[in-house]
Design a binder for these strands. Sequence first.
DNA 1: GTATGTGCAAAACCTTTGCAGGTTA
DNA 2: TAACCTGCAAAGGTTTTGCACATAC
Lengths: 156, 156
Amino acid sequence: MRPDVERKVQFLREKGVVMTIQRTAVLEALDEIGKVHPTAEDLYNHLRERYPTLSLATVYNTLEVFHRFGLVQELSFPRQERRYDTNTKPHPHFFCRVCGRVWDVAETCPIPDCPVLDMETMDGNKVERVYICFYGVCEECLREGFKPKGERWPSS
Amino acid sequence: MRPDVERKVQFLREKGVVMTIQRTAVLEALDEIGKVHPTAEDLYNHLRERYPTLSLATVYNTLEVFHRFGLVQELSFPRQERRYDTNTKPHPHFFCRVCGRVWDVAETCPIPDCPVLDMETMDGNKVERVYICFYGVCEECLREGFKPKGERWPSS
DNA sequence: GTATGTGCAAAACCTTTGCAGGTTA
DNA sequence: TAACCTGCAAAGGTTTTGCACATAC
């Protein structure tokens, strides 16, 4: 088990969360494919081979637990399944409305300084998270004339 | 009919959209309660009395048309129905995870300058919209000890 | 051993769709 | 009149839930 996963298992145990094979498996799946901001179903499909009896409902329940304990961020986009992001620090995303991919902007393109990312209160309201999302059409889809792809996550 | 609504009716007509009583009604409802970032159902309920035969499906369809022509922004939050916002310019929202209310931050609290709001391309990707959302607990819910309210939109 | 979690299936929920009839331009 | 839209009801898709059994601590 990767140290990162091990650490999260410990963290949850300390919080009183019962650590089952399934929950650990979802932590590992997140570790393995978290970068693509997977849906519950993506994670389920990723784990099916290794854990044939795992159910999708369990994946959803597990992700909710992880979310409650701050291990994942939930992302919603109109007409899209909920995505899960293991990076819980405020960081901007790009969402392509054609192919449906979501990615972390900062990895490919440094963005201008954005002071709102660090705000902890706002006019008396408690800020727990800050979501920034660029919505549009990605370079690839622009080139290909806006033709939606069959696969959500091209192998590239 | 308010001039703002009249203008939008004209705009849609020029785009070749057939303007029906229902579509105009939804424009008016948006004009009247748009500030609360209503769901399709909120708009439907708002209009039921005046248009008893209006159906929720029509409201959804109508909102999709408006969205296609850039008259509304769609907002999605985890575990929440889709919201509609008549302000289509990039502007930050606050979303209270306890009472579920959404509002425009700029109206109550000027936020620091945020250059990302004006970006039109990002590393070759075409940016059409920029969403910024503060997620947390509003002042009122903090005071009331995180007790979720029955009503989504208190009369205040 | 007891509390907690899982799997299954079904329910709940939100949103979209097909179609007959009605409306708009 | 021809194209388009509406209402209804049903389908579709995602997420949640109830319950008997299994597992973690």
